[in-house]
Write a protein that binds this DNA or RNA. Structure first.
Lengths: 332, 332
DNA sequence: CTGAAAGCGCTAACAG
DNA sequence: CTGTTAGCGCTTTCAG
């Protein structure tokens, strides 16, 4: 900046004014400075400035998602980017990998880079470790999974009622022997979906003996294997409820592998690309990832702008699409 | 940091030494400092330090991809994250949206935040605007699309030969009336794939009259519409070559909508989730997004570490999977 | 092994 | 409308 000032023959503060579009600079001087800046290919160092600035903001947010390679995370990420982009924010993103230690490390990494706020999907049993940071003034919003051990803004799907709705579709078509395939129940979201499933079967008075609860599935491959094992049982389930997109994909692979996609019913939580094209079509509970991301980002921006109302918990409604796989009846 | 120093009863430099794990601190002093830091919930400000540090590195890289919601971008992103994460780097990510102005704005945003390097997918006709920045010492690597107007490291798929391989599969099964569905040909990657397609048909001596070249398709919906239009022709194509994942999805939708998935052959460039499950299975040229991301990140890290060999162009081989959709013959 | 002083690039506060 | 001075939180340099 000093170089620019020298070249333009003005003081540094004047350069600062021009670069930051502050008032009180004559058009002639401004032009001179702009020209010098361009000549030297000058780029403002936002961090150096924010060191002295009173609000100390960096125009940066940190985003922690399940995995940047997961389509659901990608959709949330995209919505957040769209929401904060016009305000000039940059976003640090990272993958949680359902690893508690990694979560802590990544959050620390973000904080050391002085993000103005955090949008988090977490796996730790308690996020109380963030309490101290909140006092330092960094706001955060939880998306997809609610916080534990700390009261904070959260935006989540209606997991419990959504899962119940999906399960009811199977029950309505006469299924009693149903398998639930889900993620680790310690993950609140997974727990809620499990409970929604159990709500629905309990309402119909299905004995738990008729159910298979397969949990701690984390990826397509483990879900595929678990599904194959169920399909190979002598008196296995006549319907499957898969509680998450990767699990749904794994289950579909297994069903098609055994050519049972028209015999065994399937309802998934969260839609999947080509779920509409495949035969039978995937019946599923749909999530509004775009809405989750947008609301999360809006909440965070409001906090960054100093809003101080009590933490809010926003629940985004789920939908249901019947495409065929959930409308198969049990075998005679 | 001063607060920590005061609380621990030592000088700031000693705190700095402990926090950064520098030598020459007695175990007792170190412990005292650590305790004080924990008590105050102290987090190092990496940017303040890097202001004075000689290497001026921020441990941050900027990543520009097609869209963080696109599965191919997500896979590249993930590979890059894995590669740089262990070195403690954070990554800024943003979506290009094939918008040249947006590209410039996002690159500027990254530079003002003093990233140590850039990994870019671009849409501008020339990236010569980066030349000045390179002189300032910021290295960059291009992924997925090669640079123009500037010589720089690049990691791309073998687009031309890959597209030719895919097209040959259709030719081998007797097709002559083939439609090419692709993105804007100004995008180098799209252009290479188009050329690969044309190479293959030229080798077989197919007259261009037998071809349909539909380009400037950017998303599923435009690809679906274009495909429907082709399918509804009296003497339309007997085979489709789709040059990109979203286009492939749109084409599959259209084929299934008209129930022609077993009549009209399809080969896509890039695999799609459930492409193995759907019937007929999707025959496609596969890209190694993980490898592209990893090599790109390794290249960038090497540059950040000061390597100064001439720019390299790395081509990642493509594969081919025959699953059925590409092995359908033309109607009698 | 430890600390004091200087200064990184910038903006706040003020004086002209 | 413009420039000067101090200092943001840290690391470098160098003296103890």
């Amino acid at each position: 900046m000093r170089d620019v000032a020298t070249l333009a023959g003005v003081g540094v503060k004047t350069v600062s004014r021009v670069i930051n579009n502050e008032p009180n600079v004559s058009a002639v001087t401004a032009e001179k400075v702009s020209r010098a800046a361009r000549a030297l290919n000058y780029q403002l160092d936002v961090y150096a400035g924010n060191l002295r600035r009173t609000d100390r903001s960096t125009g940066t947010i940190g985003l922690l998602v399940a995995s940047v390679a997961n389509p659901f995370s990608g959709a949330i990420h995209r919505a957040i980017e769209d929401e904060v982009h016009e305000r000039g924010f940059s976003v640090f993103s990272a993958s949680l990998d359902d690893d508690a230690e990694r979560e802590r490390r990544l959050v620390d990494q973000f904080l050391r880079r002085r993000v103005d706020g955090l949008i988090l999907t977490t796996i730790t049993t308690s996020q109380a470790y963030l309490l101290a940071e909140r006092e330092h003034g960094t706001p955060f919003v939880f998306v997809d999974r609610e916080p534990r051990g700390i009261d904070a803004d959260a935006v989540v799907s209606a997991n419990r009622t959504g899962a119940a709705t999906g399960t009811e579709q199977l029950l309505r078509h006469g299924h009693r022997r149903i398998a639930y395939l889900g993620d680790r129940p310690e993950i609140l979201t997974a727990g809620h979906r499990r409970n929604g499933f159990l709500d629905a079967v309990a309402r119909r008075g299905i004995p738990t003996d008729d159910l298979w609860m397969v949990e701690r599935l984390a990826d397509e491959e483990s879900a595929r294997r678990a599904t194959l094992a169920l399909l190979d049982l002598a008196d296995g389930p006549t319907a499957l409820f898969t509680a998450q997109n990767l699990i749904t994909i794994g289950a579909m692979r297994a069903l098609h592998e055994r050519d049972l996609q028209n015999e065994v019913a399937l309802v998934g939580f969260d839609d999947v690309i080509l779920g509409d094209v495949i035969r039978p079509g995937l019946s599923c509970v749909t999530q509004d990832a775009d809405q989750i991301g947008r609301l999360g980002a809006q909440r965070l921006l409001a906090r960054i702008d100093g809003e101080s109302c009590p933490p809010e918990r926003l629940e985004v409604p789920t939908g249901f699409i019947a495409r065929g796989s959930g409308e198969i009846g049990p075998r005679a």
